[in-house]
Simulated scan of single mutants.
Amino acid sequence: MALIVCVCDYWNHRHFYNRPVPDRFQMLCGGEGNTTVKTEPVRRLVLELDAVRGNYVLRELLQQRVLKQWLLRELGVRLVWLRFQMPQRWSIDYKWAEMMAHTIWTHIELEHLMCWLSTLGGGYSALGDQFARYAQTAGEISLQQLAIGLRLGDPFLQARCKLYYSISLIQRGQLRSAKFLIRAQYRFACGLHKKRDKRLMRMCLGVWGRLCYEYEQRQKQRLSIENGKRFE
């Protein structure tokens, strides 16, 4: 048995929560003239509150299991009717505003830091083709970007940072690890979400092309070494 909550707003629009789905068989029988559907009386609790206090009461009714059981078992209430009225005085939640301001400012600073790391990582990655230590530094920068992506909670940003790290792996010759990492991000971009990230898919294909090129160069190098040994 669930507690039904109905909210009546300023325009007398009704919004139901935990409303049971009507039985199809009863709906079908109700359309016939000779058939009557028995309905049990429902005890209701009507509360007239301003919108600010009513919102707190609504959250308590939806989240507090003990309160719902107490209303159902002790008072026998099956329906709570919340009628919202225009508050006489609007109150500002300064604590919540301070928390939101801190969160927004943190996101701004993290995104600003991400831009700087992207510029710096791109420079080290460009030099990583000739120098292994620059490729190592570019990989460390990508891991720092991944930590920021985890803090921001953006899964697509995290996937892009992992792709940046796979480029560092390719430059350092760790092709097998890069291969599994690129495949995982491509599967994530294609199949794990309803909305596909085409940008991430193109990035995966581009890095995969770089990986295939490195495999071909490694294979040519092996063939040249084997041929050189044969002629010795």
Rank of each mutant, 00 (worst) to 15 (best):
I4Y: 04
V5N: 03
D9L: 08
W11A: 13
H13W: 01
Y17C: 03
N18W: 02
M27N: 07
C29T: 04
G31K: 13
T36V: 10
K38E: 10
T39E: 12
R43G: 06
L47M: 14
E48M: 12
A51H: 10
L58C: 08
R65Q: 15
L67H: 03
K68W: 00
Q69N: 15
L71G: 09
L75S: 07
G76Y: 05
P87G: 04
W90V: 10
W96Y: 12
T103H: 12
W105Y: 13
H107P: 01
L113T: 14
C115I: 12
T119Q: 15
Y124L: 14
A126C: 07
T137M: 11
L143S: 00
A147V: 02
I148T: 01
I148C: 08
R151Y: 09
R151K: 14
G153S: 07
L157I: 03
A159Y: 07
C161M: 09
L169V: 02
I170M: 08
Q174P: 00
L175N: 12
A178C: 08
K179V: 01
F180W: 14
R183N: 13
Q185P: 02
A189F: 02
G191M: 00
L200N: 08
C204V: 04
L205T: 05
G206W: 06
R210V: 09
E216K: 11
R218N: 13
R218A: 12
L223C: 03
